[in-house]
Amino acid sequence: MFTGIVEELGTVESVEDQGDAIRLTIRATTVLGDAGLGDSIAVNGCCLTVATLEGDLWTADVMQETLDKTSLYGVSGGDRVNLERAVTADKRLGGHIVQGHVDGVGTITSRTPSEHWELVEVTMPADLGRYLVDKGSITVDGVSLTVVETRGDRFTVSLIPETLARTTLGTRRVGDRVNLEVDILAKHVEKLLAWRDAAPTAPADDRDGDA
């Protein structure tokens, strides 16, 4: 479980092609401070497991399913990536509840700079639109953000200077692909309501019938 508050910008050291998977080696410092083998670290919003640790390098195995459904497909040496350790029970929840399970890949379609912030528009798979609401939460490349406006298959977010400076969203360009994770609470509510609507209606007791 994560919060969407990026702790560090790491650097991809190497990518080893394993046929139906890749082994990703990433250089980092902060997120390795208390990391151990088997721990979870979110990389651009994808929950990955620490496979090896050596100094400031760690590796993770990325399966074909993840490559098929996230922007980690095509990652290469030298790329910067957003990193976040799994949240601990005593940590402030500064963002929102993030699982590190990518729901789809979006594309940056425009960036509109202002004096103190930047408005970014992102397209998304059409089936994710129902989970977004204005001023609700969305995770973009592992960054917890507030939706400014949602319209059909696209939405906008405002990036403050801190986000621009400390995450990959500061350098993402129009046309770049980004990982998206919608609010898990919205998905749970949708399923609960669907079950309620599908449940058969129990017949009312006939209290006025003849004995």
Rank of each mutant, 00 (worst) to 15 (best):
E149D: 15
G38E: 00
D56C: 01
D153G: 13
E121W: 14
T139R: 09
D210A: 14
A42N: 05
T171R: 05
V140F: 13
P113K: 10
R85L: 11
D20S: 13
V6T: 09
A199I: 04
A60H: 03
D79K: 00
W58H: 12
A204M: 10
G36C: 03
V189R: 01
V31T: 12
I5N: 01
R151S: 15
G45M: 05
A86S: 15
V189T: 02
T156A: 15
G38W: 10
G19T: 09
F155C: 11
L53Y: 03
V182K: 07
I26R: 03
D183P: 11
R80Q: 01
T201V: 10
D208S: 15
A204G: 11
Y131M: 01
S76D: 08
R23W: 01
A28E: 06
I184Y: 10
L83N: 06
A35C: 07
T107I: 14
A186N: 04
V174H: 12
P113E: 14
S110I: 04
I5E: 03
V43I: 03
D90T: 13
T150Q: 15
I5S: 00
K187P: 02
A35P: 09
E7M: 09
V6P: 01
N44H: 06
P203S: 05
E7A: 06
G38N: 00
K135V: 13
E121C: 12
G95H: 08
L57N: 04
A35R: 06
C46Y: 02
T123V: 11
L83K: 04
D17F: 08
M63H: 11
G136L: 02
G74L: 02
I22L: 06
V43W: 02
D205R: 13
D68M: 06
K69E: 04
D197G: 00
F155I: 12
L93V: 13
R177W: 07
A126I: 14
T201I: 08
V178W: 09
G129C: 08
G100Q: 08
D68W: 11
T11G: 00
D134R: 09
G136Y: 07
D79A: 01
